[in-house]
Nucleic acid binder design. Sequence first.
DNA 1: TTGTATGCGTTATCAT
DNA 2: ATGATAACGCATACAA
Lengths: 335, 335
Amino acid sequence: MKKSKKFVTIRDVAKAAGVSINTVSRALNNRPDINPQTKAKVLKVAKELGYIKDATALSLRYGLSRVVGVILEDSSNPFFSEVLKGIEVKAKENGFNVILMNTEKDYGLEEEAIRTMLSRRVDGIIISPTQEKTEDMKLLLESGTPFVVLGVHFNEENIPEVYSNDFQGAYAAVRHLLENGRRRIIYLSAYLYKSVAQMRLAGYKKALEDFGIPFDEKLVYEVEEGIEQSYQKVLEIVNSSKDFDAVFCFNDISAIGTVWALKESGRKVPDQISVVGYDDILFARFIEPPLTTVRIDKQQEGELAFELLLKIIKGEKLEKKKIVLDVNLIVRQSS
Amino acid sequence: MKKSKKFVTIRDVAKAAGVSINTVSRALNNRPDINPQTKAKVLKVAKELGYIKDATALSLRYGLSRVVGVILEDSSNPFFSEVLKGIEVKAKENGFNVILMNTEKDYGLEEEAIRTMLSRRVDGIIISPTQEKTEDMKLLLESGTPFVVLGVHFNEENIPEVYSNDFQGAYAAVRHLLENGRRRIIYLSAYLYKSVAQMRLAGYKKALEDFGIPFDEKLVYEVEEGIEQSYQKVLEIVNSSKDFDAVFCFNDISAIGTVWALKESGRKVPDQISVVGYDDILFARFIEPPLTTVRIDKQQEGELAFELLLKIIKGEKLEKKKIVLDVNLIVRQSS
DNA sequence: TTGTATGCGTTATCAT
DNA sequence: ATGATAACGCATACAA
């Protein structure tokens, strides 16, 4: 593999224009100390030759790349794809580019992604950690490279984070189910080593407590995320003739699998079983029945993450290191 | 904005290990001409100091960045988010990273994105052009930077492309509708300056022709892509009391809007009106009624695009410059 | 086996 | 107003 084509450099422009390379640099960068005519000529030549500034050279020169690294579980997941969109929008707005890496929820890939980003000398990193293990976060911390954790809450003061209020969301969702007379509410959870799953569990418990309903751990199921996995688990639950009248799902993807399984088992949603999702992905309202869910402004979450990161990169004083997004319960027809 | 922290360089390692910088380089790059003990020591020191190779310096040095630029209309669109996933997977597999830029279907942003990618000295570009204007493609072509066009077909021999067989897909979809007795089939199209929209129109016409049904241009509507836009347009069509018994939609997003509008107008799908989508996005089967659609293997499309690009980057001989993916009609309950 | 010097493209410092 | 030169981090040709 060798370079396909030589790019035009300031040296080429200098030669063609009959000036020195830093006269070219001056012209290109709108410096005041240059004769307007010289400048005009240089600019003309540069254009003719098709000169395009080499950003890799600038990165080396300044130790700044104007690139941010984005490390996500899976950019094709409708939740993350909207978050990513928000990041990309704000990055572009501020003259930054985005390098994307997916971890596929694999700790090894996550660590590799961090190393790659550091090697690329990105100016900052936005990461949504898998949380299966967290040693790699120390690597990040020690690297000195600015970073923001997205969608996850660590119990360490000095880690900048943007995440949504999952306690509030879960509380609202479960309270809503209770107010509608549901009493045996399953929590179909993601793996509980995830802070998000834990916070939602806490909200779930608090709502039960406020209604004087004892918490039954037998109603909490840990499932790997995915439509298929939720579908299988719910089928299993139904076949075990467990008594339940509602399912609070970890996210909308999971809720879709849940509704699918319930329908297939002949259970009416919401007549017999209520289902509530989480995230309010674009398609939540279009499934049948339209999904009651907890809305997170995903694009905003991405935008806030970038803006927080940018402040850190600029070395600005932060009012808050932890930004918590409010969420809203959206009641549709599945509950 | 200034560099937040100095990274450890080979010079630092050299000093700490008491050797010269290129002894360090030799150790780090597994060169044979180095004393194993020296090597071990250098490696140890490098690890202790937390040395991480500077990829920007390598880019400059070799004129190769091992980065590919990906330019899409909108990475949060479920079609593109899966394509992107495929690209990212193959890129990682081959030691490349991905810089992502969205164009929001804006020609200005598209051109800017190309310039940015060239400036970043990416080794190659995968682009899904808006096609509103195409001058920027010339810029790309002249730049000499390897690139692959994704999802779009130009009538120029020497442009490498990966796209799906839209003629075949549209033909299958419309033929299916005809076989089920539909005769007044609306084609809810994207803007017809897009090659995809044109190819699907051609497939639509051919199917009609094969059934001896005259083409009626009044049944073709150009709509901006989006659930809301399709919803509005279909409401409009219904209210104009146009006579039709099926809608062949440009994509699933559009089909979702169509079904929504039809339901809201009291039309039964598929009893009164059949609806067929395109793409088979993840959620197509979960809407009500489950959507009949033309399946594109989106992730594969992304993977093929990267693989084709990689061949071009490597300067390999190409068997084919144009790769056309087969598609399948998936019959569900909306038709 | 190890070290020295050069260049990749750019900007900044310091002349002139 | 303009030009020569060093420096960013690295790998390599060449010298020792």
